[in-house]
Design a protein around this nucleic acid. Sequence first.
RNA 1: UGUCGGGUCGUCUAAUAGGCAGGACGCCAGAAUUUGGAUCUGGAAAUAGAGGUUCGAAUCCUCUCCUGACAACCA
Length: 557
Amino acid sequence: MEAEKESLNFIEQIIESDLVTNPTKKVHTRFPPEPNGYLHIGHAKSICLNFGVGAKYNGQTNLRFDDTNPVTEETEYVDSIKEDIRWLGFDWEDREYYASDYFQQLYDMAEKLIQKGKAYVDDSDAETMATQKGTPTEPGVHSQFRNRTVEENLDLFRKMKAGAFEEGTRVLRAKIDMASTNMLMRDPVIYRIKYATHHRTGDEWCIYPMYDFAHGQSDAVEEITYSLCTLEFENHRPLYDWFIQELEIFPSRQIEFARLNVDYMITSKRKLKQLVDEGIVSGWDDPRMPTISGMRRRGYTPASLRTFCDKVGIAKRENTIEMSLLEYCVREDLNKIAPRIMAVLDPVKLVITNLAADYQETMLVENNPEQPDEGSREVFFSRTIYIERSDFMEDPPKKYFRLGPDRKVRLKGAYIIHCTHFEKGADGKVDSIYAEFVPNSKSGEDTSGVKVKGTIHWVDAQTALDAEVRLYDRLFLDPTPDNHPDKSFLDFINPDSMDILQRVKLEANYKKAGTSRHFQFLRKGYFFEDYNSSTKAIVFNRTVTLRDSWAKLQQKI
RNA sequence: UGUCGGGUCGUCUAAUAGGCAGGACGCCAGAAUUUGGAUCUGGAAAUAGAGGUUCGAAUCCUCUCCUGACAACCA
């Protein structure tokens, strides 16, 4: 426990070591999403890291939209990203920036590079440039336009900006080294012509900087001291540093860490968009999506996601986290805060034959045993109740602690009942169960001396509310659905990822259990009331089941 | 065949100047229990391999093996 608290991840170690050398160094980070999709669990890790490190070392964290590609970026995404970060519990205060805010500065930097003879306009088409680039094992060759004069380059670049050329006919390239072993240093393209309307700058620009000429430069403008990104940018670091040196700008330091992977989930924005566009899920916030908005709708809490991001750690090795860790984190949080109510997902009628037909009683049931201060609520009880179909077996095995013919069980918060007989319907399924309550066995005042091993939940039939409950399971059947070279991730879609239950029986007073929209349905799991739920049509989403040691035992028998 | 990364329990992750390989999830067993939940106790479980340096190596050196990224006018 203590060791866990004290150990620093490698980024914190770098920072603390810098702070020893330079105690006044500011820790300034940024979270730099591209607004071309919704944020997902992987972004949550980056958000927690960047904002977490900023806060830990009394620094600041900027939100910066990396919006340099007008073709894919939209305001809808900007809005959802901001909502998701706030919901996760982080605050960028007034530091909401856009790379597009820096277009003029970026342009000026490009001219500076041209002036220094370190950039040139290339008229080659994309195919020629690709060919000339060489391969990882063979050096590239120089473009015929590489030795244009500064004046010619400046003139052409200004014309590019002025809209004198067709899209795709010219680019600006950094002049570095076509023989570098790092492909990114082989005269990378830094500006391209695009006649597209930008979500913020409109048609003001027809040339746009590439990632490598926008990200690091934006870091410099904002004086970001630690630019934390994922491993795939490792090869970009020499280029990042080259621009700092040639442009003589603020020396931000790029540090790469391994992205988060969770088994049975995908985090490719392109593929998530495909799930949405093809209608495989209901939208970006479908509760089966690994998006922050999807998990929010599913019933995950900000705290549980933050705990998860903390527990997965920060390192450089590739990793795949088991989903059980995520589930552990959400159960741990919900166990503390979710009021308990009783809901019967798959109801079967049970008649207590030694009660009068008009018998009525209210039982006091605790709202949350983990929070005694939250008190109890009244739950209606009468002669006819619903119990879970799976809580009765015609011919139960010895280790089954629930109901069966001539077996006894405790009704949570009420009496012990003794099953006398049951009836089947025409379909062969159990239709009605009959039982007698044991006198003097009422919960809390039991003097009957009868001991039972099982306790089941129930809902009074007369007063029960009907609800729709959506049971969600993993969206994919394979732990790494997008890791099969010969198959599409769509081949692994779980056909049973959603099960909609229409006639769930809910206790009438469930709202009195607490103000939370998160509930624990006793013995069944944690459920979250959907934003489409209303008093006329109650809808719940299952966040996660409870751990189920009976299911495990059952598999072994 | 190149360059740059990375290999510690099943999965993540520690071991901060070379000094008892620790924690978490999961798993197994038990206790307790009016949720087969939560809780509590205990357990099994790892340094990719081979050499070398050293009193002592996950850590330093050499070789081997495995693995990821890189040849978009995407980010």
